[in-house]
Simulated scan of single mutants.
Amino acid sequence: MLKNLNIEEVLFLDIETVPQAPEYNDLNEKWQQLWEHKMQFQINNDEPAEVLYDRAGIYAEFGRIVCISAGYVLQKHGELFFRVKSFYDEDEKKLIQNFFNALNLFSKKGKRRLCAHNGQEFDFPYIARRALVNNVRLPKILDIAGAKPWEVKDLLIDTLQLWKFGDYKHYTSLSLLCELFNIPTPKDDIDGSQVAEMYWEKKDIDRIVRYCEKDTLAVANLLLKYKGDKIIPIENMEVA
Rank of each mutant, 00 (worst) to 15 (best):
S107I: 01
H117I: 08
L217K: 01
Q75M: 10
Y199Q: 07
E47W: 05
G166M: 07
E61C: 08
N4C: 14
I205H: 04
Y53N: 10
M198L: 13
W200G: 06
K230C: 06
N104D: 14
Y72A: 10
A147D: 00
A70E: 12
I43K: 15
D167F: 14
N118V: 06
Q120P: 00
P186S: 15
L52I: 04
N25T: 08
N135P: 00
D215G: 09
F41I: 09
P19F: 01
R130S: 14
L156Y: 04
Y171I: 13
K169V: 00
R113E: 00
A218T: 06
D191C: 03
N134R: 12
A102G: 13
K227R: 11
P19D: 14
N236Q: 11
L27N: 14
I7H: 02
T172K: 11
S69H: 02
V66I: 15
V73Y: 02
W163C: 11
E121G: 12
R55F: 08
P233Y: 06
G228M: 07
L160T: 02
A218I: 07
E235F: 03
N134H: 12
K3W: 11
Y168F: 13
C67S: 15
I68L: 04
E9L: 01
K38G: 03
V51P: 03
R207C: 10
E92K: 13
D189Q: 14
A240W: 07
D91G: 03
I127W: 06
V239F: 07
N25F: 08
M39S: 08
D154Y: 10
V66G: 05
I157K: 03
N98Q: 12
R210C: 05
A60R: 10
L224N: 02
Y226N: 08
E151V: 01
T216G: 10
R83N: 11
Y168M: 09
E16W: 07
Q97A: 10
V51Q: 11
K202N: 15
S173K: 12
I141Y: 05
V219C: 04
G71T: 02
T185D: 09
K169A: 07
E8H: 13
L217Y: 12
I127Y: 08
L132R: 14
E90S: 11
L180T: 15
D206R: 15
K94M: 08
Y59Q: 03
T159R: 11
D158V: 05
P139D: 14
D191Q: 04
P186W: 06
R210T: 09
W163T: 11
L74P: 01
R130G: 10
R55Q: 12
R83L: 11
S175G: 11
Q32I: 07
K85H: 13
P125Q: 08
D154Q: 14
H77W: 09
S86Y: 00
Q97T: 08
A220L: 06
I183V: 13
A60D: 02
I205Q: 01
I43R: 15
F62I: 09
Y72R: 13
S107K: 13
S175I: 10
I234W: 04
L80M: 08
P233I: 01
D154N: 14
N134A: 09
T17Q: 00
F12I: 02
E197Y: 12
